[in-house]
Write a protein that binds this DNA or RNA. Structure first.
Length: 587
RNA sequence: UGGGGAGUCGCCAAGUUGGUUAAGGCACUGGGUUUUGAUCCCAGCAUCCGAAGGUUCGAGUCCUUCCUCCUCAGCCA
């Protein structure tokens, strides 16, 4: 953890709730048997040593993105700060959409972000599907308590009878079956004696409730589908509404944090848990649900549907395309876990819908990368500079610090020769106002080398500058006595043409050109930035040839770059531009 | 038009049971340092808290009315 992350965090409403709960000793008697379970199981346990328990509960039906990172940092961060534990729990109650591939990917990315779910010997990695038996028993308990019934209406009939936002619903004709009949039918559902979709188990609450979620929500459906975890053991599966509160309760979660759209479901969450506590299946204290506003980022789409569309219609190269806001893509782009954690802290948590400016994320990455990335030299758009008064064939050591803020990281040598590559934009035949780099008859310092004076230049038939000529001033070499006798404002980087690694670099920019892709009547695909990626051939200092996949560097005066983790070969890395340096001059 | 939420500086976001000059971050604007026009440092940046009334010695914090935005009618999560 860096100093930046040890700065006291701004308070937020969830921390306020936790502070109050802890002050009231709300969980002082809560037990934990070392594994998830109901009242009977937990009763045999000890007082929970975890002060609070939170959980990150993804459905393994897609890849994690930056929005998830906010939730992950929130849940795991809270557990860390309050001496608690955060579980990683896969909410896998819909087998038709879920798969092991997603489980693996999600697990990997949560770890990558820097969080763990281990607590001593306990792994606290769970699957909702491991609780199917308990959920089934809970459903029977509900039936026996007169709180659930088997409904044989079709999906369409159910929808029609649910009413509207302003009109009450109508009771199902099957609503008043006897407990015995309900139990028998529910068991038939479980035993495969009822067809898919022919009936559902519904909670029996109030078809006239102004909250539509309380109008007898479906809690179990018949679905013959192979489950990635339970195989073909079940042909009935619980709905999220029913399953999630039970998952939280079995894991002794204290603070169940989700996004705003679940707010309407909280009454059912509490209703269900109370019923199961009455039935003796669960013990108090029961978990509570709290909702926060999901992340919206400008110039980015985070909806699962749109992300899938971008990938399937090949607008990007895949789920880990460096331009995508998926965590896999961000990692390939060179975004770092530290940067994401800083970002999460910086944007805060509240219940107000908000749009975070994309530059906030970029700034967080710059901030952490500035601290961690070693410096290297890269000429991205090379033109030749010839030092006419420099000896042919001579090669001279120049010393460049690996990190200006961390002298302990040492220096490396780079070779200066008569012919160099410099940046095309560092020379101007007719300088614009305020330009202080190379101009005819002007002085500029070759960074870590000599001060040179521009003596001329050559152009091709098209009028493009091809070669710049200069003469060096012998007594001005960096690091030698008197080097600063001649002051120059300009300072440009360079790479010897005979000591260069010619390399492919992917220059990435934002995927969308509009702050709010697809806003209003527009199709979000029409807002795609046609210049979000282009590949260049650059001249890099030789040391970069040995970069390992995922190594990050600051290419001085340009930005942060990472050796692509997929396409880099040993001795032949290719780089992705993570983010540029801030540039007051460009503005 | 029913239920549930939210409205504090360009973007986020703190604001204890009402107490007197409305945190902080990002952005922005000045100035300084600097062999990255980077980093870093210093300073400035809401007489005002969606609007209008009201209660009070005193309100972003309480009351009333209004406005705007988000969200809910899957056998998805």
């Amino acid at each position: 953890m860096s100093d930046k992350e040890s700065i006291p965090l701004a308070s937020n409403f969830i921390r306020g709730i936790i502070d109050r709960d802890l002050a009231e000793n709300k969980f002082a008697t809560k037990k934990w048997a070392g594994s998830p379970g109901g009242a009977a199981h937990q009763a045999a346990g000890h007082i929970d040593t975890a002060k609070i328990r939170t959980r990150f509960p993804p459905e393994p039906n897609g890849y994690l993105h930056i929005g998830h990172a906010k939730s992950i940092c929130l849940n795991f961060g809270l557990a860390r700060d309050y001496d608690g534990i955060c579980h990683l729990r896969f909410d896998d109650t819909n087998p038709e959409k879920e798969s092991q591939e997603y489980v693996d990917s999600i697990t990997e990315m949560v770890h990558w972000l820097g969080f763990g779910w281990e607590n001593g010997k306990e792994s606290n990695l769970y699957f909702a599907s491991d609780y199917f038996e308990f959920m089934y028993q809970s459903a029977e308990a509900l039936i026996m308590g007169g709180h659930a019934y088997v409904d044989e209406q079709t999906a369409d009939e159910m929808r029609i009878n649910r009413g509207t936002l302003t009109e009450a619903g109508k009771d199902s004709p099957y609503r008043n079956r006897t407990v015995e009949e309900n139990l028998q039918l529910f068991r038939e559902m479980r035993d495969g004696k009822q067809a898919d979709g022919s009936m559902v188990l519904r909670a029996k609450i109030d078809m006239a409730s102004p909250n539509i979620n309380m109008r007898d929500p479906a809690i179990y459906r018949v679905r013959r589908a192979h489950h990635h975890n339970t195989g073909d053991t079940w042909c009935i599966y619980p709905m999220y509404t029913f399953a999630h509160p039970i998952e939280d309760a079995l894991e002794q979660i204290t603070h169940s944090i989700c996004t705003l759209e679940f707010e309407d479901q909280r009454p059912f969450y509490d209703w269900l848990l109370e019923r199961l506590a009455e039935a003796g299946l669960l013990a108090h204290p029961l978990p509570h649900q709290y909702e926060f506003a999901r992340l919206n980022l400008t110039y980015v789409v985070l909806s699962k549907r749109k992300l899938i569309q971008l990938v399937e219609e090949k607008h990007v190269s895949g789920w880990d395309d460096p331009r995508l806001p998926t965590l896999a893509g961000a990692r390939r782009r060179g975004y770092t876990p530290e940067g994401f954690r800083l970002f999460a802290d910086r944007i805060g948590v509240s219940k107000a819908d908000s749009w975070i400016e994309y530059t906030i994320l970029e700034d967080c990455m710059r901030e952490m990368l500035n601290d961690s990335a070693e410096r290297r030299i890269a000429v991205l758009d090379p033109i030749k500079l010839v030092i006419d008064n420099y000896e042919d064939g001579k090669s001279e050591d120049c010393f460049a610090p690996n990190h200006p803020l961390k002298p302990e990281l040492g220096k490396r040598t780079i070779q200066l020769t008569k012919e160099l590559w410099i940046e095309r934009e560092d020379f101007m035949e007719v300088p614009s106002k305020g330009f202080f780099r190379l101009v005819p008859d002007g002085l500029v310092r070759l960074r870590y080398g000599y001060v040179v004076k521009c003596t001329g230049f050559e152009k091709d038939a098209a009028g493009n500058v091809t070669v710049v000529h200069c003469e060096y001033l012998p007594d001005t070499k960096s690091g030698t006595a008197g080097a600063d006798a001649i002051k120059v404002k300009g300072n440009i980087h360079w790479v010897s043409t005979s000591h260069a690694y010619t390399c492919e670099i992917r220059m990435y920019d934002r995927l969308f050109k509009e702050a709010h892709p697809g806003e209003g009547e527009r199709d979000f695909l029409d807002d795609i930035n046609p210049n979000s990626a282009h590949t260049i051939t650059a001249q890099l200092e030789l040391a970069l040839k040995d970069a390992k996949p995922s190594d990050t560097f600051q290419f001085e005066r340009h930005g942060y770059f990472v050796a692509d983790r997929k396409d880099s070969l040993a001795g032949k890395p290719v780089f992705n531009r993570t983010v540029t340096l801030r540039d007051a001059w460009q503005k």
